[in-house]
Design a binder for these strands. Structure first.
Lengths: 329, 329
DNA sequence: CTGTTAGCGCCTTCAA
DNA sequence: TTGAAGGCGCTAACAG
């Protein structure tokens, strides 16, 4: 039903090997034959079967990327970066989402392995790292590079932002603006990123001679009233975008505005945060570059395929983008 | 290097066919043998090769979805809906983005075809529909279902929102609120959706006995000053999310606030639009359901594989979600 | 039930 | 340069 290399060989009056040669370009083919072959390809609407090709070559020229979710702008930027790098090298990128579920993440990795992806980019789901699987995949020739959400200490290449610095940067800015009772709102502490951002925030406080009161650290989501009851903060620092949205909702519910009643800084850009009134001060991650760099490393591993070489561990810097929300009045 | 079905047959002391039978479950296998096989599978860390399986069965149990971009919340919801429906049937969803580029869209469709996806979901890039390719793919057994951004008249199943109604809904609301000089800001008119939303908006005006002044329709992005020079609008209606963000930026630049100076309604939810101050009135599309329904239709086509049957054309309703921005004071 | 075997479509030596 | 042939890993008959 569907045209094969054989059909077009027949139609062009040449051998299948010749057809393959004109398609892959691996072996020179004389002009007249090449023309006949290409004519037949067009005429029959032939579409090479990558499945068969991959089975033969045991390379798919396809990369997988596993992310916790697609809705967060952070991950769409990251994917775009990775996808662009892959495309430049002639690779296709397949995107799948774990919904932050480790079981599903495990399934997805197995699936990508079964699909014989040449390599996989992994932004881990919250929870234990699938190290054993990663190691087995690597042994089987499926490279894995972690990005954004990376495991603590593990034999994998990784690219991410410097989380400690990001946390420090945001809180230091608040301190410099004159805020003293700074509340920290974080995501789940199972995530290493979150732990490190919190660590950075604490460091910034210590460096300023301020002590962090435990009452002012809220891991996970804010609860109503946290902002009102003593010790009430004069500023809020959020360690990620979704958390920031939650915190802002809470502020609104409590009738608090930034920066009039409380200073506000978050890690991650919020969609259209320049439209918020007042605009939001953010510690911005180079999301696109994280994706790009990770894909680059992965592709190098795949194409060099030589000895293991050194593990690559890239830490990129986040940048402070000052808005209105942290301007103490 | 990588364990094959053969290796585990050897390790378990059975024939390859038996191994295949326990894996696929297509033929019953006695308990003792099944156990030996499964032990061997675990021991050797065997991972089935989907490539080979697909070559044999000529089914990949994988669907592709092509979207213009990932950053828009609308598309991530849509993808989640489609992905969920696919997963329920045991299919994997591969996400690729066209960046709204028809050439790239063409390449991606060819690629998905070459990868022998069992079916493809397509939210078209702005520009001419790749009808010929779609027809060829269908003939070759790769079903295509269009969603969200669908072609005008074409022999494909399609799922989308009722754009005319969505446009009408938004503008009618503004009229009901007492606005009279309503500006319409649209996306590129090459997009059928945009044309139809504009049409709906015009209908709502006519039905209210209001005439649309050409000066108050801005296709594409707003330009500075449009809002200030006469005839200045007393309300703005945007036909999609990104356009709305642009318009809001413009309003801010002009020092105009909603609803004090100008009423505001948009099609599409904006991320965290409940946090905008004032909150934004939106005509909300059932994005998740669009994805879900489209995947459902596609899967039915794939699995029934029978006669063509009737073309399915699903039009879902958008809903008005009233916020502050359209409350005339 | 279990084992054997013939391809799925393609690429890649290897001879001619 | 061209053509013929083997086999990638797996499934699905089919024969035992």
């Amino acid at each position: 039903m569907m045209a094969t290399i054989r059909d077009i060989a027949g139609a062009a009056g040449v051998a299948v090997g010749t057809v393959s040669n004109v398609i892959t370009g691996s072996t020179p083919v004389s002009e007249p034959l090449r023309r006949k072959v290409q004519a037949a390809i067009r005429r029959l609407g032939y579409q090479p079967n990558h499945i068969a090709r991959s089975l033969k070559t045991s390379r798919t020229r396809t990369l997988g990327i596993v992310v916790p979710d697609l809705a967060t702008p952070h991950y769409s930027k990251l994917i775009r970066g990775a996808e662009t790098a892959a495309r430049e090298k002639g690779y296709t990128m397949v995107v799948v989402t774990s919904s932050d579920d480790v079981a599903r993440q495990q399934d997805l990795l197995s699936l990508l392995w079964s699909q014989r992806m040449d390599g996989v980019l992994l932004a881990m789901a919250a929870g234990p790292a699938p190290l054993k699987l990663i190691v087995r995949m690597a042994a089987a020739g499926v490279r894995v590079v972690c990005l954004d959400r990376i495991p603590g200490r593990a034999p994998v290449d990784s690219v991410s932002v410097d989380d400690v610095e990001a946390g420090r940067l945001g809180v230091r800015h608040l301190v410099e603006q004159g805020y003293r009772r700074i509340a920290i709102v974080t995501g789940p502490q199972r995530l290493r990123n979150e732990r490190r951002r919190l660590l950075g925030a604490k460091l910034a406080l210590e460096e300023s001679g301020l002590s962090l009161e435990e009452g002012l650290v809220w891991p996970g989501n804010l609860l109503t009233g946290d902002l009102m009851e003593p010790p009430a903060p004069d500023a809020v620092f959020c360690t990620n975008g979704p958390t920031a949205l939650g915190a802002l909702r809470m502020l609104r519910q409590c009738g608090l505005r930034t920066p009039d009643h409380v200073g506000f800084v978050t890690i991650d850009e919020l969609t259209a945060d320049d439209l918020f009134y007042p605009t939001i001060t953010a510690v911005v991650q180079p999301a696109y570059e994280i994706g790009w760099r990770a894909a680059e490393i992965l592709l190098r591993r795949i194409e060099d395929a030589g000895p293991e070489g050194e593990l690559e561990t890239v830490r990129l810097d986040a940048a402070l983008r000052v808005g209105d929300s942290s301007q103490r009045r």
